[in-house]
Design a protein around this nucleic acid. Structure first.
Lengths: 213, 213
DNA sequence: TGTACATCAGTGAACGCGCGTTCACTGATGTAC
DNA sequence: TGTACATCAGTGAACGCGCGTTCACTGATGTAC
């Protein structure tokens, strides 16, 4: 809406990135092709070359956009629960889960190495670092609140991110035992998993705080 | 060696699975094709159809083999350190890391959903469950030794596996900050990460116990 | 304001390629008598 | 032991397809005077 119409199409570059996300949700990672993305955006299949040097560059842009969405979802959760580090941890992780579950193939292309030479795509690397910095920020708040162990916050952040990323990946790959998924809701299972790395009991957070009369 | 030569080729089915692993290590997941696998095994590109109904079935077999290798590496570690649950945890996790780092694309195809309809490949599902059962076994031993928190062992196992799987995935995708990788060896970083979920200090394990004089 | 020109986003034909899959076949092995 | 037949693993030509990329082009927009 806010974007000014440019030459012919308007902002084709971003339209292609959005079309890429659409294709991913419809046809998956293996169904993502330059030609389909162009068609989805309503241009000829060679038009993307005016904005991306090759397919890899388009994939890198789509992946960077995936990281941006993930970052923004976590940041929104962190902002909403500012001052409550335990809740920031839970809701940030929950945002991660939701992104992966609802945009599975966008999540996969972003975090499963479709970008082959990361170094060539500084915007992608920047988004990745920005996300890790956000995780570290939440982790530091949790450490101060004694929700997480003391220690170098980047090290603790690697543990926290590994736990969440592993959980989400296993969910997405359908590797979590169904007897567990029958027993717990996905959200409760996430909280019970986070609880294993926490220094305090997080399980009360499984239930929304009741209104005080 | 032990396998009896069959009709023409001999055990082509397994030869194709091994050839698949070779192709993965050379050309990666995106470079894996039926035709290359057949060529690598020294047969015409239609020969695989005598053993696999289609490409998906071959990929499922290669993935199942990947799970088998992973299982066996962890099982070997568990057996070597029988009676020392903390060490079983560390060395089992280390075996996981080593498999992923040395056979990256075999690891990826196995655990990053190349098998689209798992249900259609019961051998794959069986290997997956067998691996999870092994993790649970180690987790239970750790719980009895108070190395891990008490609680339902399948739930704790999900946490442990998530932590390890996430760590390994992030390493493989080059998402772990290089300042951390400069500070610690991969093995020490793994142990420091496991340490966050453990109820005892695992860090002494980072250094081989010195001989007592 | 009007004309001439430069820019450059987007077009469409064409390319060569590797792919998965089919099909009629070949030829080595195993089995029946 | 020898012949006739059945089995079936592996062959090779052929198919149609979607792909990434190139290239000469068109035509709308922006700029100079």
């Amino acid at each position: 809406m806010a974007r000014k119409k440019a030459y012919h199409h308007g902002d084709l570059k971003n339209a292609l990135i959005e079309a890429g996300a659409d294709i991913l949700s419809r046809d998956g990672v293996s169904g993502l092709s330059l030609r389909k993305v162009a068609q989805k955006a309503g241009v000829s299949h060679t038009a993307p070359y005016a904005h991306f040097t090759d397919k890899q560059a388009l994939i890198a842009a789509i992946s960077t956009d995936g990281f941006r969405r993930l970052y923004e979802a976590i940041a929104a959760a962190a902002q909403q629960y500012a001052g409550d580090p335990a809740r920031q941890l839970i809701e940030g992780a929950w945002a991660y889960v939701q992104f992966a579950v609802s945009d599975t193939d966008h999540f996969k292309i972003t975090l499963s190495g479709a970008v082959e030479k990361e170094k060539d795509y500084p915007a992608f690397v920047a988004m990745s670092q920005r996300s890790f910095a956000l995780v570290m920020q939440i982790v530091e708040a949790c450490q101060q609140a004694r929700v997480l162990k003391p220690g170098p916050s980047d090290l603790i952040a690697v543990g926290v991110w590994s736990l969440i990323h592993g959980f989400v990946s296993l969910i997405v790959e359908d590797q979590i035992s169904h007897t567990l998924l029958d027993r717990y809701s996905l959200r409760d299972l996430l909280i019970l998993t986070l609880n294993q790395i926490a220094q305090v009991d997080l399980t009360p957070e499984m239930f929304p705080a009741p209104d005080r009369a």
